[in-house]
Design a protein around this nucleic acid. Structure first.
Lengths: 243, 243
DNA sequence: GCCTTTATTTCGAGC
DNA sequence: GCTCGAAGTAAAGGC
C-alpha cells in the first residue's frame, strides 16, 4: 500500500498532489483551516475553522470537525471532486447531479495532506438485524404465538411489503410486522396499513389480525394498537445464540 | 495548529503517539490494514483490509473504506478510546455504555498516523429546513389557502406536536403538517393521527380538516390522504428569496 | 429513475 | 432518562 503525505504544503503543492491522488483513485485526507459552502437539497454555510476533509474515489466527500459521528458537511457517492487554486488558496469542489448539489471547501491554510490506496475488505456481516429476527420467527413460529403458521415472508400488498404473513390456529390470516427495537406510533400505523390492505384483498368480511413483534412499544404506540385492534408480542431483541 | 504525523510507524510508536494525542484531545487519523469487530445493539465482523480510522476527542470513532458516505463501522460520541499493543499489534478499542457497545480495531500494519488539534467553527447555518417552511407559512398563510389563519405553531395534541394549527375562512379548525420534500404514506398517517386527536379535543361533531403541505406526494400517500379525507397543498421546496 | 423501508440510523427538543 | 420526529438523512431492494 502506498501512502503519500505532505506536511504543511503550499496550496499549489497540495493541488498537485490532490490531482495525482484523484488520478490514482486514492482516498485523501486533508487537515486545514477552511470555510465550507453547500448548496443543493438545502443550503448551508460554515465559517472558517480547523477541519478534516476526506475525499473518496467513489465521489464521497466528508467534512468533519472534532465533534460528532456525522460530518458537518458532505457529498454522497457519485459526486465528482475537483480541485483548484484561486487567489493563491486551495479550493476543493465536489459536484453531483440529480439532485444538483455542490460542496465548496476553501482553505486558508493546509496543514496536512495524505493520499492512500485503500482497497478490499468492504463487506461487513452484521448480526442482529430485522432480517435475523425474521429468520428466528420462521424457525420458531411459536415466538409469535402457539399455532401460528407462517405462509409467506415476502408477501406484497397494496400498502407495501409485509414482513411475515400467516394464519393462526383458527385459520385466520395474520399480518406480522417485525421491529428489532422499541417502537413508536409509526410502526403501529405501518401495521394498520398492511392489515387494511390484506382485509381488502381477502374475501369480504374476513377478519385479519395484525401482530407487531418488537421488544417493547411506547405508550402512544400502545394506544394506537388498541385503537386499531392490533396486538403486540414482546420478543427479546438480541438472544439468538449468545446470551 | 499543531499536526503530528508518523509514516509507517512501528505498532509501539503508533501506540505512544495515539496515547499522547488522546491526552491532548486531538483528532486522529490512522491508515492501515486492520480487522474490525463491533458488538452492541447489533454485532458485526469485518475481515482484514485497508481502512481509515478516525478518532475524535468527543469519543466518536469512524472506520471508513474507500466507498460510501457512511462509515463501515463506528462508535458514537461519548465512547472512550483506548489503545494497546497485543502480540506486537496495535489495537484500538472504543467502548461506551447505555447501550453497552464495543468497537475493536486490530491492525496488522499501520501505514500512517496523524494527530491534529481541531477546534472551533462547528456551527453550520442550514437553510431550507422544515423550520424555514414553517416561517414561510406563518409569514404568508395564503400558501396553505386563501383565508387560512394560523393560530398556533406549537400546539400539542394527544398524538404529538402539530406543526401549524389554525382555522379556515369558514372558521373550521385546520391541522397543517409540513414536509420539505416529497412524502410517502408515513406522513399521511402522521397527519391522520393529529386530525383524529384534535377531533377528540374539539366539541363533539366538529369537522377538523387536515392539510399536508409538501412539494408532492407519492401515489400511495395520495390514496391514503383520500381515504382519510385529508388534503394536499403543493409548495415549491426551495424558493424563498432565491429562485 | 421512483417508491418503500431499514438503520448499530444520528441528532435535537421536550418532558 | 425516554419519547418523538426531522434529516441535505444514507443505503438497500423492488419495480
Amino acid at each position: 500500500m502506498t501512502a503519500t503525505t505532505l506536511h504543511e504544503p503550499s496550496h499549489r503543492e497540495a493541488l498537485w498532489e490532490l490531482e495525482a491522488a484523484f488520478e490514482r483513485g486514492d482516498v485523501v485526507t486533508l487537515f486545514g483551516t477552511c470555510t465550507v459552502e453547500y448548496d443543493g437539497r438545502a443550503a448551508s454555510s460554515l465559517g472558517p475553522g480547523a477541519r478534516l476533509l476526506v475525499l473518496k474515489p467513489d465521489g464521497s466527500a466528508l467534512v468533519h470537525t472534532d465533534e460528532g459521528r456525522t460530518p458537518v458537511n458532505w457529498q454522497p457517492p457519485g459526486s465528482e471532486h475537483r480541485a483548484a487554486v484561486r487567489d493563491g488558496r486551495l479550493r476543493v469542489r465536489s459536484v453531483r447531479t440529480t439532485p444538483a448539489e455542490t460542496l465548496d471547501v476553501r482553505f486558508s491554510a493546509v496543514d496536512h495532506l495524505a493520499a492512500y490506496g485503500v482497497t478490499g475488505g468492504r463487506d461487513v456481516e452484521v448480526v442482529g438485524s430485522e432480517a435475523d429476527l425474521k429468520e428466528r420467527i420462521v424457525a420458531d413460529p411459536s415466538l409469535v404465538e402457539a399455532g401460528f403458521e407462517p405462509l409467506a415472508t415476502e408477501r406484497e400488498s397494496e400498502a407495501g411489503h409485509i414482513d411475515v404473513f400467516g394464519r393462526d390456529a383458527e385459520g385466520r390470516p395474520v399480518v406480522v410486522e417485525l421491529k428489532r427495537r422499541r417502537v413508536g406510533p409509526d410502526a403501529a400505523g405501518q401495521l394498520a396499513r398492511y392489515v387494511n390492505a390484506i382485509e381488502r384483498e381477502e374475501p369480504d368480511g374476513t377478519e385479519v389480525r395484525g401482530v407487531l413483534v418488537a421488544p417493547s412499544v411506547t405508550d402512544r404506540a400502545r394506544d394506537l394498537l388498541a385503537e386499531e385492534e392490533l396486538e403486540h408480542v414482546a420478543v427479546d431483541p438480541a438472544a439468538s445464540d449468545d446470551e
